[in-house]
Design a protein around this nucleic acid. Structure first.
Length: 468
RNA sequence: GGCGCCAUAGCCAAGUGGUAAGGCAGAGGUCUGCAACACCUUCAUCACCAGUUCAAAUCUGGUUGGCGCCUCCA
């Protein structure tokens, strides 16, 4: 399996730290509002990465934090006249609802920054002892130049940063030894949440949170650290500096970053007013469609969001779900139990689709190609099954389709719904009408059912229905 | 100013040296009472210029046009 490592800027063969195990950390959202669809991209992408590792038989320890102490949370709390805690708890709950809708598996552990302060204080102390950090008036800074490898992830050198530093010397930052130094601990301001520390009552800097939580739940060295590409600098660069300086060993072997999601070819931003929350999308579309849409492009390419593209994704996903529905429908009515010779021969041909699917996923999680393999399987099942197919054959095809789509987090095995009796009766009545060639009545019933959200399909094998 | 990315059909999107996957939309057809689903057929020489090579969408140089990071941001 190959994955692109931001550290080396190359695709590398994946070799786990511990055989058979994957330890991965994904930087989670700051919870000050509903998550937006940009937040959703890394969630969906790295959930899919996780699912593929699990499909391959790895034991995955997947940790993703919630940043629940932050300026934006505090600001929101003041606006609403409630505590920061109330804001963060509320939006963590909302975020989990959205994640469920997108079929994102809960992490093995979702640590909260506010519950890990003790460990952060300890890590900062270690950094001070080792000479990598210093305190000034209650604030603790990381001594950036002291860490030789600084810049190895973002491929910047300190002098380039120097020349671009222009605005770094604003407001009170002049007590730093060097403009490149960053904050590990800052004293509280009036009304802010705070914790005790040897330096001041205050709160941790953002970067140290992830270093500590990663260490606590996954250990000093992990396999994969992931997040949006905007986190490469400075967030991940600083995490590396902190963790490697404190622990004395390589932090993460592989660094994965997803590209941004734009809206109508523009970056999402508050000033443009084009922020779209996942919740908003869910009012209009099944979030499965959003997931399918996100996976239709490679995770390292920028992706554009628009209404048209969602419509196209809806049609595309429907094609896959229709195939699964049809297989289930045939299975229900199948007469023959076991596969015959012909079916056995046909089923062997599906190996090629599985091989294509895996080849795509093994090449740095090329989900667009993997989806193409799923479409090949869909066409195969549509073309090579009918009312005479055996239960076993249909079942195996169905099982395979579910297995592959499940890696992508797409649900095609919808729970069997039971129709109300009066609806069953209407469908029967319509069949009678059709037999009697009373098509006006038949169409009237079809329209009536459509109004109730039931779509009918008259297949050669009988009447199939689904919810709109 | 520094670092970096991208440009494939109406739309989306794979493909990194051997002559263009897949999906959506469109057109024609089969099936069907009709519709829907499905199936068949059809729809590109890869921004532009120059070069390397027997061979380039794929490598090199340049041009044009987009974009990102360097500051909170997924």
């Amino acid at each position: 399996m190959k994955l692109y490592n931001t550290l080396s800027k190359k695709k590398e063969e994946f070799v786990p730290v511990d055989e058979g195990k994957v330890k991965m950390y994904v930087c989670g959202p700051t919870v000050y509002n509903f998550i937006h669809i940009g937040n959703a991209r890394p969630m969906i992408v790295f959930d899919t990465v996780r699912r593929y590792f699990e499909y391959k038989g790895y034991d995955v320890n997947y940790v993703s934090n919630f940043t629940d102490v932050d300026d934006k949370i505090i600001k929101r709390a003041i606006e609403e006249g409630v505590t920061s805690d109330e804001i963060s708890k509320r939006y963590i709950a909302e975020c989990k609802k959205d994640m469920e809708g997108m079929n994102i598996k809960p992490a093995t552990k979702h640590p909260l920054a506010t519950e890990e302060i003790g460990g952060m204080v300890e890590m900062i102390s270690t950094l001070i002892e080792k000479g990598y950090a210093y305190e000034k008036n209650g604030t603790v800074y990381f001594r950036t130049r002291r860490f030789e490898d600084y810049g190895k992830l973002s491929h910047k050198n300190l002098d380039d940063l120097r020349s671009g530093e222009r605005s770094l010397l604003v407001t009170g930052e002049d007590e730093k030894e060097d403009p490149l130094d960053f904050v590990l601990w800052k004293p509280k301001k009036e009304g802010e949440p705070s914790w005790e520390s040897p330096w001041s009552d205050g709160r941790p800097g953002w970067h140290i949170e992830c270093s500590e939580m990663s260490k606590k739940y996954l250990g000093e060295q992990i396999d994969i650290h992931a997040g949006g590409e905007d986190l490469i600098f400075p967030h991940h660069e600083n995490e590396i500096a902190q963790s490697e300086a404190a622990n004395g060993k390589e932090f993460s072997k592989y660094w994965m970053h997803n590209a941004f999601l734009n809206i109508d070819n523009k970056k999402m931003s508050k000033s443009l007013g084009n922020f779209r929350t996942v919740r908003e999308i869910s009012e209009q579309y099944d979030l499965q469609i959003l997931r399918f849409f996100m996976l239709s492009a490679h995770y390292r390419s920028p992706l554009n969001f628009s209404a048209d593209l969602m419509e196209a994704s809806k049609s595309g996903l429907e094609r896959i779900v229709n195939a699964a529905d049809h297989l289930k429908f045939l299975m229900k009515n199948a007469e023959a139990e076991n596969m015959n010779e012909e079916e056995r021969r046909l089923f062997v041909r599906t190996d090629a689709f599985v091989a294509d699917f895996e080849r795509a996923m093994e090449d740095d999680f090329n989900t667009a190609d993997a989806i193409a393999a799923v479409f090949d399987l869909v066409k195969f099942t549509n073309s090579n099954t009918d009312a005479d197919s055996s239960k076993e054959y249909l079942g195996k095809l169905f099982e395979l389709l579910v297995k592959l789509t499940d890696v992508l987090g797409l649900i095609v095995d919808k729970e069997e719904e039971i129709l109300a009796e009066d609806i069953e009766k209407l469908i029967e009545e319509r069949q009678e009408a059709r037999k009697a060639k009373d098509f006006a009545r038949a169409d009237a019933i079809r329209d009536e059912l459509l109004a109730k959200g039931i779509i009918l399909k008259d297949t050669r094998e009988g009447v199939q229905w689904k919810k709109a």
